[in-house]
Design a protein around this nucleic acid. Structure first.
Lengths: 228, 228
DNA sequence: GGATCTTAAACTGTTGACAATCAGCAAAAG
DNA sequence: CTTTTGCTGATTGTCAACAGTTTAAGATCC
C-alpha cells in the first residue's frame, strides 16, 4: 500500500475526490512514479485508490487542460512527453514570466523579503558545498517560488507553478549536469543583488538570462533542440 | 509494432461528448450567453444537450483548470467573475507574453507575413472608418493571433489564446470605449512597423505598451483597479 | 412581526453497470 | 512465409441510480 489515500480521505474536509486524486496524480508525476508516455489505467487506478472511475476521469480532464497528460479518445490518458520543441518553447515562456516577476518585485521588495531570499541562496550554498543535489533542489524551488510570490501577481505565481510542474521531468535533468549547481547559484546571487538594489530592469534581465541558461544546459548554447 | 502516442494523436478525433460539451460551453461564455457569477445546473445542461451528467462534469473540470469557471464543492460550478485585481494581473501577464511574441517574430518574419498583418490593419482601418465595432473586433483578434502564430512558439500561441478566452468579457468592454478603436489601430500600425523593420526590441516594447494601454483604458492611467 | 427550527425539494458527489471501441492473437487465405 | 480476417479479452465512453449536502420554504416560537 504505497499510497496513503486513506489518510487523505481523513484529512478531507471540503474537497472532492476529484481534487484529491488530481493532486495525488500531480505528485506522482512530480516524483517520477509515472513516466512520460505511460498510460493511466482507469480501472487499476480506481482499484488502487479505492474509488470509482468517475472522479478519476474528472481528475484526468483537469490534468489534460494543465498539460500534464494527453487524452486520446477511446485509448486513454497518457503521461505527456515533452519533446524538444515543446520544452524549448516552455523555456522561452518561462523566461519571459520570470523576467516579469523580477521586474514587478524589484521596486516593491522589502528588506525582510531580501533576507528570506538570501537565506535560500545560503541554503543552496551549503547544499552545493556538500555536493547534495537533493538539498539543492528544494532551495532552488523555494527561491524561484518566493520571487514570484513576493512580486504580488498571484496569477503569475500560479502560472509559473503550472509551468514548473509541466517541466518537472526536464528540470531535474538539467540541474543534474555536473557543474550546474555552482553556476546556477552564482546566477541566483546576481538575481538577488539586482532585486536588493531595487533595479527592475536588471532583475528582469538577470532572471530571463537565468532561465535561458538553464535551457542552454539542456539544448546546447544555441538553443537547439533534439528533433524527436 | 504497436502504435505509439504520436501516431495515436494523429488518429485522434475529438468526438467525445466531453470535448464537444467543453467547446460548446466555451463558446457560450464567449458569446456572453453565460454571464459571470451564474451557476451551471448540471441536470438542466444534461437535459438540454441530451446527454448524461458524466460528460458535463468532465467538461466542467477542464473549464475549471483553464480558469473559465469556479467549482465549489457541493454547490456547483459558477462562471468565473474576473475582479479588478485578477484582470490587472492578467493584463500584466498578457503584456509580457505578447512582448515575447513580438521579440520572437521580428527577426524571422517573412514579407508575406508582413503583408498579411498589413491586411488586418487595413481591415481595421476600414471598420474604423465605418465606426463598426463588430468588424473591428475580429480584425483585432486576427492581428494578435497572427503575431503569436508567426512567432513560431506554438505553446505561446496556445497560452495567449487561453488568456484571451479568459479575458473575453473584459476586452470587449475596453474596445467599446469611445476613441479606443482609432487609438488602438495607431498602436497596431506602430507594432507592424517595428516588426517589418525586424526590430525585436522595438516590437517587444510596442506590443507590451499596446497591452498596457488597453489596461489603462479599463483601469485608469495608473493601473489602479476597482477594489471589489 | 421577526427570528429560529424543521423539513422537503433540488442539486451535487459518487458509484456500478452497460455499450462501444481497441489491441492482440490465432486461424485462414494468398 | 506473409497478409488478411475474425475472434476475444481488456479498456474506455456513457448512463442511470443512489447517497450526502445545500437551499429554501413553511411551521413554530418569542
Amino acid at each position: 500500500m504505497s499510497l496513503d489515500i486513506d489518510s487523505a480521505l481523513q484529512l478531507r474536509r471540503n474537497q472532492s475526490l476529484t481534487s484529491i486524486i488530481r493532486h495525488e496524480l500531480e505528485q506522482m508525476i512530480e516524483r517520477g512514479e509515472l513516466s512520460a508516455g505511460e498510460r493511466l489505467n482507469e480501472n487499476a487506478l480506481a482499484a488502487r485508490l479505492g474509488v470509482s472511475r468517475g472522479p478519476i476521469r474528472e481528475a484526468c480532464r483537469g490534468l489534460e487542460q494543465s498539460g500534464l497528460v494527453n487524452v486520446v479518445v477511446n485509448r486513454g490518458v497518457f503521461i505527456r512527453a515533452l519533446d524538444g520543441r515543446e520544452a524549448a518553447e516552455l523555456y522561452e515562456i518561462r523566461a519571459a514570466l520570470y523576467g516579469l516577476a523580477g521586474r514587478l518585485l524589484a521596486p516593491i521588495v522589502t528588506d525582510e523579503q531580501v533576507a528570506i531570499l538570501s537565506g535560500y541562496v545560503a541554503e543552496m550554498d551549503a547544499a552545493m558545498a556538500a555536493g547534495d543535489l537533493n538539498s539543492f533542489y528544494p532551495g532552488n524551488l523555494r527561491f524561484h517560488e518566493a520571487i514570484v510570490e513576493f512580486g504580488g501577481n498571484g496569477r503569475l505565481a500560479a502560472e509559473c507553478a503550472a509551468i514548473h510542474r509541466e517541466m518537472h521531468l526536464l528540470r531535474r535533468r538539467t540541474l543534474d549536469m555536473p557543474g550546474r549547481m555552482t553556476t546556477s547559484n552564482d546566477e541566483h546571487r546576481a538575481i538577488l543583488e539586482r532585486i536588493a538594489a531595487r533595479d527592475a530592469v536588471g532583475a528582469e534581465a538577470a532572471l530571463e538570462e537565468h532561465v535561458l541558461i538553464s535551457r542552454s544546459a539542456l539544448f546546447g548554447p544555441l538553443g537547439h533542440y533534439p528533433d524527436t
